[in-house]
C-alpha cells in the first residue's frame, strides 16, 4: 500500500509542482492576459459544459481514432515487411528516414489543395504525420531480430504462419507497442496542426475561434485538455511497453 502511495506521489509530483508554479507566477504578474492555473481549469470545465465544444472534441477524437488506426496498421505492416527484406530495406530505408526528418507541416497546403478543407484533408495529414515513425520503428525491429530465431524456425521446420505466431510476433511485440505509442503521439500532433491550420471544426478550430475572440482563459483550458488527451494514452502505452519489455526481454 505504501509503495502504491509512493508511486502515485512520484507520478503526481511533477504536474502538481508545475500547476503551483504557474499559479504563483500568474498571481505575481497579476495581468488579465495571463491566466492562472485555476482560471485554466475553470476554462476547461466551462468549455466542456458547452455542447458545441463537446461536439468539436468528439469530432477530433473520432478523426484521431480513425487516423491512428490507419497510420498504425499501414506503418506497422509496411515497416515489418520492409525490415524483412534486405532489398526493400535498402530502397525504402533512406526514403523513410528522409521523409521522417522533414518538417511535414509544410506539406499541409498540398493536402488542402488535393482534398479540400474538410475532414479528409485533416485525416490524411494526420496519417501522413504518424505513419513514418511507426514504419521506421518496425523496420528497424524486424531488421534487428535475433538471428537465433531464424535458426529456431528452420530447426523446427515451422510453417510461415506458425513461425509468425510462435516466434516473430512475440519477439516484435515490444516494438509494436513502441510503434503504437509514437504513432499515436505523432498522429495526434498532425491532427491538431491540421485543425489549427484549417480552422474548420475540431479542438484546433475551437482554439482558433476563441483566439479571435481573445478568450484567453478558455483557450488555456482547452490547451490543458489537449495535453491531457495527448499525454494520458501515451503514458498508458508506455506503461504497457515497459511491462511487455520486462516480460519478453531476450536473455543475454
Amino acid at each position: 500500500m505504501s509503495s502504491l502511495v509512493r508511486g502515485a506521489a512520484t507520478y503526481l509530483a511533477a504536474p502538481i509542482v508545475v500547476l503551483v508554479l504557474w499559479q504563483a507566477i500568474s498571481m505575481m504578474v497579476a495581468s488579465p492576459s495571463v491566466p492562472t492555473s485555476t482560471d485554466a481549469v475553470e476554462g476547461m470545465v466551462d468549455a466542456l459544459g458547452n455542447p458545441r465544444f463537446r461536439s468539436s472534441v468528439l469530432s477530433t477524437l473520432r478523426l484521431l481514432g480513425l487516423s491512428f488506426l490507419l497510420a498504425a496498421v499501414i506503418g506497422i505492416l509496411a515497416g515489418a515487411l520492409a525490415g524483412g527484406s534486405s532489398l526493400a530495406r535498402r530502397v525504402l530505408g533512406p526514403v523513410l528516414h528522409l521523409v521522417n526528418a522533414t518538417p511535414k507541416i509544410v506539406f499541409f497546403p498540398v493536402f488542402i489543395l488535393a482534398l479540400g478543407l474538410g475532414d479528409s484533408a485533416k485525416l490524411s495529414f494526420a496519417v501522413f504525420h504518424g505513419v513514418f515513425i511507426a514504419a521506421i520503428v518496425m523496420m528497424e525491429a524486424t531488421e534487428g531480430l535475433n538471428p537465433r530465431y531464424r535458426k529456431v524456425i528452420s530447426a523446427y521446420r515451422l510453417r510461415p504462419v506458425q513461425a509468425t505466431r510462435l516466434i516473430v510476433l512475440p519477439a516484435l511485440l515490444p516494438y509494436v507497442v513502441t510503434a503504437l505509442r509514437l504513432c499515436l503521439a505523432f498522429t495526434f500532433i498532425g491532427l491538431i496542426l491540421a485543425e489549427l491550420l484549417t480552422g474548420t471544426g475540431g479542438i484546433g478550430g475551437e482554439i482558433l475561434r476563441l483566439m479571435r475572440l481573445a478568450e484567453v482563459e478558455r483557450i488555456t483550458g482547452i490547451v490543458l485538455l489537449v495535453m491531457v488527451i495527448a499525454v494520458v494514452p501515451v503514458m498508458l502505452l508506455r506503461a504497457v511497453e515497459v511491462r511487455i519489455r520486462s516480460r519478453y526481454a531476450p536473455n543475454p
Binding site: 489549427l196 476563441l210 490547451v223
Partner: peptide, 8 residues
C-alpha cells in the same frame, strides 16, 4: 502538441 500553445 506544443503548437496548440501558440495562440495562448
Amino acid at each position: 502538441p506544443v503548437f496548440a500553445l501558440y495562440p495562448v
